[in-house]
Design a protein around this nucleic acid. Sequence first.
DNA 1: TACTGATCATTC
DNA 2: GAATGATCAGTA
Length: 235
Amino acid sequence: MKPPADEFQLMDAAAELAGRSLGDLAQRAGITVPGDLKHAKGWVGELLESALGATAGSRPVPDFENLGIELKTIPLNPRHQPQESTFVCTAPLINTAGLQWENSTVKAKLNRVLWVPVEATHDVPVAQRRVGRAILWSPSPAERKILRDDWEEHIERITLGYLDELDARLGTYLQIRPKALNSRQRTNARNHIGEPVSAVPRGFYLRTCFTRRVLSSFSNPSRNIAAVAAQRPTK
DNA sequence: TACTGATCATTC
DNA sequence: GAATGATCAGTA
């Protein structure tokens, strides 16, 4: 699939995928469907990237670089709600002093996201799972503020060298969790007195409750309108 | 059953 | 080695 030239081409391509099965998409792309995702955890995401012409590869930039749009597949449980957290990007553990939210990778990636829901019921064979309607989303001012506050709290802990305190329970919407080959992997970091130390690599993740909010606001128009209205300054 | 910490595959 | 794509699986 060629990279979309603009947002409309991307949305057309995404709309064309709605209702199709992963087996269908894989066949078109000439890709074999894995029996399960245990040893192919990124397979669905990569299939959708291929189907929509994403270009970023493994660089820390949005998938559709020219459009500034990030592609995220979102696994749905049997009730068709998001069932997993969403990886955003690697968390920096060194040289974090002076980092600003405005220049952060998190902000760049979440500024505009194409969410593509995909059925993820374990009982259903991977090939039979269907793609849902894609949503082109940007954070509301209220969401932006919370994401920024979360990010700044995490970065401050890292900058102060309190890595031991980094914990998935911190952060309202944005959390930090291990992002590694295994628990033995290490990367460079600094402790609270500025000495070089080794630490498990971390990543930023969006909590499941956050993606549930995002999707439900789109599937329930009145709720979405209410959310927008609530942000309008009263006068 | 929801959530956190652990893990798997691939690319550059 | 570090970035991407995530889901798995044990436990609270």
